[in-house]
């Protein structure tokens, strides 16, 4: 009965290539080189992450990225124990929002820590082979 009641379909949602944009591309190239950078707004002087070609505060065009110290602070974290369907994960994963001193915004990324805590100072663990993706940072670890 179900075969006549339902029409199964698979959306071709894997077939996208997203453009990072001029500033985003520079940022990804920096990640590939093992450097962490933030967008710099020439009008308000703020640094912000993730970088975009426009300042979210005053709509000024952003052309420049500046390297930042790769030591962040855990602002919030969660230990993911189950998947979306409620099944226990084989391995718990710590997901965190990480801020960097003097930088607006920050990065969402994994943290490798048995006892994560708010305020914990963390630094990126870079992969040896990097491709220009946010996952060139394998995870953050206690600094």
């Amino acid at each position: 009965m179900r075969r006549v009641k339902y029409f199964p379909e698979v959306m071709e949602i894997e077939a996208y290539v997203y453009t990072a944009g001029p500033v985003g591309t520079k940022w990804l190239e920096a990640l590939k080189a093992g450097k962490l950078m933030a967008a710099y707004c020439p009008k308000c002087g703020r640094l912000f992450l993730p970088p975009k070609m426009y300042c979210p505060y005053d709509f000024e065009e952003v052309k420049e990225l500046r390297e930042i110290a790769p030591v962040g602070v855990v602002e919030s974290y969660t230990v993911i124990e189950r998947d979306f369907n409620g099944e226990p994960l084989k391995e718990k994963r710590v997901l965190a929002f990480i801020k960097f001193p003097g930088v607006e915004g920050g990065l969402i990324h994994y943290v490798k820590a048995d006892k994560p805590r708010i305020g914990m100072r963390v630094r990126p663990k870079w992969r040896d082979e990097r491709r220009g993706l946010v996952t060139d940072i394998e995870y953050f670890e206690e600094a």
């Binding site: 998947d83 979306f84 969402i108």
Partner: peptide, 17 residues
Amino acid sequence: ISIRPLDIGNAHALAAL
């Protein structure tokens, strides 16, 4: 660019943050 590659296994984790 900044989040999708992390392949977060559970979207509710963003609410948990």
